[in-house]
Design a binder for these strands. Structure first.
Lengths: 115, 115
DNA sequence: TCATAAGTTTGATTGTCGCCCAACTATCCA
DNA sequence: TGGATAGTTGGGCGACAATCAAACTTATGA
């Protein structure tokens, strides 16, 4: 029944949070948690085309950055977004990220950058 | 007088922006640009204990992610934050990052997480 | 024209990341 | 007790990132 450790709210570091979010798999997972609430790993893994050990790695990155909280229930881990802690420490950040994700990727593509 | 290419506003990708911000040197530079406006490389480099080629690399990462705009004037490069473009594409994101940076790191340290 | 200044590019090194496989731990249940 | 389920850990691999040094490009100006 030992719960995994996660950083205290005061210890959350912006750069770590940004690094944790700077991955498509992880930021999508954060959006999913924000949308659907607590999920266990199996439910998430079922919807993702990534090996479960890779997902376990992503769960750890998110947890250690302080983005998620993991609760052990029996043999399941339930993962939840630490929304209140994040909003307290980094006001508006998660909202902005989620909004930007939901925003339709503008249809009119222009030329991309060079070197 | 050739100006370096940078992505169009519509092409900015959230994950790239987050990755560009997920580095202490770069996010500090973004904060500096937000605070002081355009800067040339020499001015920035004078205040940083990082090799100028390393800084040049960071300038490129920020530029290619769409965070900054570089204007060549003579033999100087003037770097500016693409604040309006970023706010249009990712509303609230830069504000939240800057606010979180300015916020005093809470003094009452608690125990940090383990692995 | 030629030295100097401002930055970038290339190369090398070192470290980290994302991924998967295999093995492991822990829990449930029959 | 033994098998199945849920998830983590450690190892290995290829790709990428951060850093510095040396060489290069372009513009200034004496």
């Amino acid at each position: 029944m030992k719960q995994p450790l996660q950083p205290a709210t005061a210890d959350l570091r912006l750069v770590d949070v940004l690094a944790a979010l700077a991955d498509p798999t992880r930021v999508a997972l954060v959006a999913r948690l924000a949308d659907l609430g607590s999920q266990n790993c199996t439910a998430i893994n079922n919807d993702v085309e990534v090996h479960k050990t890779t997902m376990s790695h992503h769960y750890r990155v998110l947890r250690e950055a302080g983005l998620t909280e993991t609760t052990v229930r029996g043999r399941e881990r339930w993962i939840d977004l630490r929304r209140a802690d994040l909003d307290e420490r980094f006001p508006g950040l998660i909202d902005a990220v989620l909004t930007s994700l939901e925003a339709p990727p503008p249809t009119g593509q222009s030329q991309s950058s060079g070197s």
